[in-house]
Design a protein around this nucleic acid. Sequence first.
DNA 1: CCGTATCCAACATGATACTG
DNA 2: CAGTATCATGTTGGATACGG
Lengths: 116, 116
Amino acid sequence: MPKFISNNKVYYTPVEYVLSKVGGTYKMPLLWRLKDQGKRFSELKNSFERISDRMLSKSLKELVDDQFLAKKVFAEIPVRVEYHITEKGKRAIPIISSLRDYGFQLINEDGIQIEP
Amino acid sequence: MPKFISNNKVYYTPVEYVLSKVGGTYKMPLLWRLKDQGKRFSELKNSFERISDRMLSKSLKELVDDQFLAKKVFAEIPVRVEYHITEKGKRAIPIISSLRDYGFQLINEDGIQIEP
DNA sequence: CCGTATCCAACATGATACTG
DNA sequence: CAGTATCATGTTGGATACGG
């Protein structure tokens, strides 16, 4: 089996590595929302029914640190901040797209009702 | 935004739902190892460099409960148990395949050494 | 407006020992 | 051989309050 070391952490499968970067509850949904245009912190916040400031901030920060997103700060008052997808981030979009499709398929197979 | 309810838990995105079923460290790697032939508990255990009995058992059980895998027990002494992928499980394989490919791509982009 | 700090609950994972 | 039980630890995410 392969074995990768990054930031003093050991990964044993490529899937494990991917999920460490874009896994979790919000990261892929965030990239998906930003695939076509940049958005502000508040826009992103409002696009989820629930999400704490803390998790939105933390998820965005990690995506920026890992260069999936870029952050642009406008020195206005009050300050305006925009997040944009990067070239690296764009390469994740086809994967997220097929995961989404598969998600809807699973939800269907499992007979789950989607609420309006 | 959509909203799904399953087993008294609320999911807000299809990605979140998928990851609740096949996310985590071992589930997709397990499905991947079983895509072509059935394998025994001990074979699966040996195919990971590290994995506790507990996590292997737990992951397999959940995949069986969710019908991604089927379990076959042979009444031999000592007992032999085989895990096989189901039709439902097979539908996850293309997704796992592209996630794996993307994983290797990311590992490459990030300049990570793969140890032998 | 866009966050960070703090505290806390829930869950994921690991180590070890034990059993049909 | 194929697990389960128990205990310990780390990580994830939520709630709330506060700050530039």
